[in-house]
Amino acid sequence: MPGIKIRTKQEGGLTIVRVLITHPMETGRRRDELTGQIVPAHFIREVTIEHNRRTVANCELSTAVSKDPYISIRFRGGKTGDKVRVTWTDNLGNTESTESTIA
């Protein structure tokens, strides 16, 4: 089941954002052990991280990323109480977004 977990903290003038995304990240090359059929590709293409509606990171992913990707970034200018939003889109057109407050 899809999901996004965000952890934020302030450290030395930087805001640290840690993101864990629940996603199968299938390459399209693996065979199902029971049926022998190829499991269709299903992977995250793009992850965007915004701070107060300003993009601070735009990550392009591919099939080379493992299941349940973890992303960590640092940026300047964040303050306690500001909003951080994480949005992902996969190759099937699915998308998910969630927001957190900087601690």
Results as ranks from 00 to 15, higher is better:
E26S: 15
V65D: 07
E50R: 07
R45A: 10
V84E: 02
F75I: 06
I21E: 12
E26Q: 14
D68C: 02
S72E: 13
P69Q: 06
E46I: 08
W88F: 10
E26W: 10
K5Q: 14
S72M: 11
P24T: 08
T98P: 03
M1N: 09
G93W: 08
G78C: 01
G93M: 06
T89E: 15
P40T: 02
T27R: 12
A57H: 06
V56S: 03
D32E: 05
K5A: 13
A41L: 05
R45V: 03
W88M: 08
N94P: 06
E50C: 05
T55W: 02
T15L: 07
C59Q: 11
R31W: 06
N58E: 14
R30K: 11
G93K: 05
T98V: 13
G3C: 11
I4P: 08
T89Y: 10
V19P: 10
V39W: 02
P40K: 02
T27I: 05
S62F: 00
N58K: 12
K67P: 05
I49M: 09
T55M: 07
I49A: 11
R54H: 01
G36S: 05
G13H: 02
G93P: 08
T15F: 11
R31P: 03
P40M: 03
E99H: 06
R54T: 09
I102R: 03
M25E: 14
D90W: 04
G93N: 02
N91P: 04
G13C: 07
D68F: 01
G78D: 10
G28M: 04
E50W: 00
V65I: 15
I73N: 01
I6H: 02
R18I: 12
G77C: 03
D90L: 11
N91L: 00
R53C: 03
T87V: 04
R29E: 15
H42F: 14
E26V: 13
R76F: 13
I44C: 14
G78P: 07
N94F: 09
E26M: 12
R85L: 13
V65K: 05
R53Q: 08
F75T: 06
S62Y: 01
I102A: 05
R45S: 08
E11V: 14
S100M: 07
T89W: 10
G93A: 03
F75D: 04
K83V: 10
A57V: 10
H42G: 11
S66H: 11
K83W: 08
